[in-house]
Amino acid sequence: MAFGRGLVVGHLVTLRRFVRTFMVGAGRTWQRRGGGPQRVDFFQSPERGLEPVIEQTDETEGIFTVEYPDERLKVHERFRVLPVLVYDDADGGIRCTSCNICAKVCPPQCIWMTHAQGPDGNPVPVPEDFFIDMDVCMNCGLCAEYCPFDAIKMDQNFELANYERHQSHIFSMQDLLVSSGYYAETHPEAWMSADEQSERAKASKKKNQRLQKALSSSGDVPRLD
């Protein structure tokens, strides 16, 4: 029989926790974890994009609150939200060939596109327009997995809220296009991997061939490369 010993010990445990927040980590000082005075700058926040990034590990002691809009957690490379379409910085050419595979594998069927047509009415392997309904998208990343041309990639931008939900939540190609430089920045490891480098080379070659073929069959259009 314990006669209430556990009760007392339990209270001491929580009290220790309470006191420790004042002794260690961010709670010890008047500083926020990301820097700056913690409690008095209620009209100031850091500029967008310049917020301090906080590394949260299992060794974090004391207060572990990240004051989100003013401070951010590190976004890891595999973190994914919505798909985007990548175009190559080198030639400005879009990688997508409008092969429609992504639209077919998409589990909630939130992708659709229209093929571009050459002047003679034959289809050209670039999309004329490309749509993703961001309300429907479930961020599974299957489209990016299946894309044979590495054209569709998962983005990391998670701040998608806005005031209008009927028009602006269907992203068209203009909203979706990002440069390959941006992709290289957000996904450095994947970008530098041998796998993707060779894929990139192969895909651009293949695409060029197909484009050449399509264009030469329609006649008097100059070669792109």
Partner: peptide, 19 residues
């Protein structure tokens, strides 16, 4: 504030100094 400290949080600090 106190409950927040017990749970390793900061507690209200947005509205006014110290919340």
């Amino acid at each position: 504030k106190v409950a927040a400290r017990f749970q390793d949080r900061i507690g209200p600090n947005r509205v006014g100094p110290f919340g």
